[in-house]
Amino acid sequence: MSGGRVVEYVDVDLVRRTKTGDVEAFEQLFNRYQKRVYNIVYGMIGNENDAAELAQDVFVRVFDSIATLRAEEAFFTWVRTVAINVCRDHVRRRVPFRVESLDEKMSYDGEDIIREIADPAVGPERLSEQKETERAVHRAIDSLSGEHRTVVVLHHLEGMDVQDIAKALGCPTGTVKSRLARAREELRRKLAGYVES
């Protein structure tokens, strides 16, 4: 029996118990998937406060509508769709603002200047190498535009294939592939010092 099947069986049992109003069963589902949900939401929103709020909304909506879930073995696929829809609704409602890439040129008195995000952490020499790499990766992902960050999170962190991402976001697969390529190019440039060639 594969690990995936075991997960499905456990999920099915927990989903059925949650349908009867068992909050403890729902807590177990929450513990299994909160990290993935939070990362999807964070990836699509790019803001810690909003991500925490929206992750709550996702789980509350899941709890409220779990009775409508027929394919209980595909619980997380359903949760992921709920999370993506909650984020898309949020982005649609939000006042639009322009996302600036840190790599965009900025000039002052006719001279190009380099823009950087201030790093509030102590120097890398005092941090473990692992932690520093992790922070660098997070910073690099944060610096992507919303569209690029979304596809990176869904594809690289969530493991969704390009077709599923296109379907979830309502755009052509070619657009998803193109965004992935541009995002990967940008990440590679920003993480050059951390990537072992």
Binding site: Q34, K35, V37, Y38, N39, Y42, A52, A55, T133, E134, V137, H138, A140, I141, V152, V153, H156, L157, L187, L191
Partner: peptide
């Protein structure tokens, strides 16, 4: 990115 990209909720 896959290895280090995930954040803690």
């Amino acid at each position: 990115v896959r290895e280090k990209g995930l954040r803690e909720p």
